[in-house]
Design a protein around this nucleic acid. Structure first.
Lengths: 206, 206
DNA sequence: ACATGTGAACTGCTTCACAGCG
DNA sequence: CGCTGTGAAGCAGTTCACATGT
């Protein structure tokens, strides 16, 4: 398969969200133009994005809302349950464990891990908190797909190494630090400090 | 000034973080090559990024660590205190209010706002929680620079509208929804659901 | 000798524009 | 006729490669 740009995947994700709104409102078709308006892009961009995966529109009419959302879910790999573990049972971990959007989209949180013995054995928003020492064994048994890293920055790389060694191939990092992983492991970083600095830059440069 | 790409600003932010490490370790110079290695990019990229703002390296030697970090802080607008308010006193708001990285980098959180009367008047990690009705008046008086939006998705656009009407020119959005704002307002969105879907896509496409 | 600074070449994403089809 | 699908053109960001300065 042709390589798909990251920006394209993000837009597909956005389109799916709009389609769900449309579905809820009982509308049956949508044009690339409408999708573009919602997503802050252009109709050509929408059609190009979709064209990488086939042609499921009807000329002169637009796209079938249920059909397109089904296809997008397939493309994004949302047809199945993804098993997620959270590394770090702090405030961010708690906010994530609490977040309903995850479960709704098929991301099932199995457990949280923490090195602090005070937290181990408790619950974090209903999710069990386990000792980090159990990680490798648990991963072998429960086969989580995705690790969410919410440990402090100075522990993030070693936590990722642990997770990678245990065989997990995808991680979402919330620590404000650059992580290094083997090529077959996908890591996405959400860096709030970086975003704020982007705003700061924008504010001083106008 | 020439328009600077978003990706460039993000890298500058990353470089600054490495420089702070270097500074702490007492090292006095750094090469573009070393900076590149840390940031997962190339030395040419580092030099190009910096060249937009001047030439502060020494040929044959590299960059002075304290000088470059000072310049980067200036470029990113981190020479001053930024005043931040949080909209939505939920779990994410709490995690952010708690996060030390903000204060360290000069982002001072003034207050949180919530529409739930049960929360108003309490504290969120030491930050006062106020009623949303007071927003416009408070903004006029306290002049916050940045609004962080952590309300539910279906309230995010109206919250942004409120904030924009009050005169704030920068917002960081955590609601999983596309927001629309006037051109003179900078909005950055951190969408965790989108990142997870990116991981899902990566996992099914290999 | 070594590492920067920067035009030039390149790569790849976005936009254009129109043929194709319902 | 309207809207999709898509090559071609345009543009922006990245990488190359080397002249330049210390």
């Amino acid at each position: 398969m042709k390589r798909i740009a990251d920006s394209t995947v993000r837009r597909l994700s956005a389109y799916l969200r709009f389609l769900e709104d449309f579905e809820a409102r009982g509308l049956s078709t949508i044009s690339s133009d409408e999708l573009a308006r919602q997503g802050g892009t252009t109709s050509a961009q929408v059609r190009k994005d979709l064209s990488f995966f086939g042609s499921f529109g009807k000329r002169g009419l637009g796209y079938s809302v249920p059909e397109l959302s089904t296809r997008l879910r397939e493309i994004l790999g949302l047809g199945r349950e993804w098993r997620v573990i959270i590394l770090g049972a702090g405030k961010i971990g708690a906010a994530l464990a609490h977040y309903e959007g995850f479960r709704q989209r098929g991301f099932q949180i199995l457990a949280a891990y923490d090195s602090n013995p005070e937290k181990v054995g408790r619950k974090l928003e209903g999710i069990p908190v386990r000792g980090i020492a159990h990680l490798e064994r648990d991963v072998a048994k429960e086969k989580p797909d995705i690790a969410v890293i919410t440990v402090p920055a100075d522990a993030a790389q070693q936590t990722l190494d642990l997770v990678v060694r245990a065989g997990i191939k995808a991680a979402l990092n919330f620590a404000p630090t650059q992580l290094h992983a083997p090529a077959d492991v996908t890591v996405k970083t959400v860096n709030m400090a970086m975003e704020l600095e982007g705003l700061s830059f924008a504010l001083v440069n106008r």
